[in-house]
């Protein structure tokens, strides 16, 4: 019966491990399918984008977050609400550019890489590229074109994991003709 008693706590942990391990299986498959790491990064980013454009709806429905008035507010929502909600972590927001159009998310831990070690022959693999795509796709759905990339990655020997986000432009809403 002891097996049943710790089910609740176990299942919570297991659920996030399900995601982590599934992601790992995907990266493994992509590394088999593509010849070089850049192609794998690109594919992961693309898949992330597709997830992001759908995830934003889930996010807006679950959280009571309204429209952000500036990029700083957006940064806060991403770090404190979205990352917390989906990955259980709260990255810190730092390194603002003077113009306020660029910032970094510093991840103390990255649940995606929990059981991962990069072999030497994959030094160009940006393992968590999916995250960039997710962020880009989600923000595009709220009319923000943003450039997202990994500036540092503990998996590749850096001290921290840093995602750099740069605001490009506001996407004009395309209203259907005669619907203004």
């Amino acid at each position: 019966m002891s097996r049943q008693s710790n089910r609740a706590t176990d299942s919570k942990k297991m659920n996030s491990e399900l995601f982590t391990l599934t992601y790992g299986a995907l990266v493994t498959q992509l590394c088999k399918d593509y010849e070089n790491d850049e192609e794998v990064n690109k594919q992961l980013d693309k898949m992330g984008y597709n997830i992001g454009v759908r995830l934003i709806e889930d996010f807006l429905a679950r959280s009571s977050v309204g429209r952000c008035h500036d990029f700083r507010e957006t940064a806060d929502v991403i770090a404190k609400v979205a990352f917390k909600m989906y990955l259980g972590i709260t990255p810190s927001v730092t390194n603002w550019s003077p113009a306020g159009d660029e910032f970094s998310l510093i991840l103390e831990s990255n649940p995606l890489v929990d059981f991962v070690e990069l072999p030497d022959n994959h030094s160009n693999l940006v393992y968590s590229s999916l995250l960039c795509g997710v962020l880009r796709g989600a923000l595009e759905m709220v009319q923000m074109a943003v450039d997202v990339r990994f500036a540092q990655d503990t998996l590749r020997g850096d001290n921290v994991t840093e995602i750099r986000m740069k605001f490009i432009k506001r996407i004009e809403e395309n209203l259907p003709a005669g619907d203004e």
Partner: peptide, 20 residues
């Protein structure tokens, strides 16, 4: 909302993206 629930959404999206 718990991480548990949200993580499930994330898994489901990832799963269908993998199929795709």
């Amino acid at each position: 909302t718990s991480v548990f629930m949200s993580n499930e959404a994330l898994f489901q999206f990832l799963h269908s993206e993998i199929i795709q």
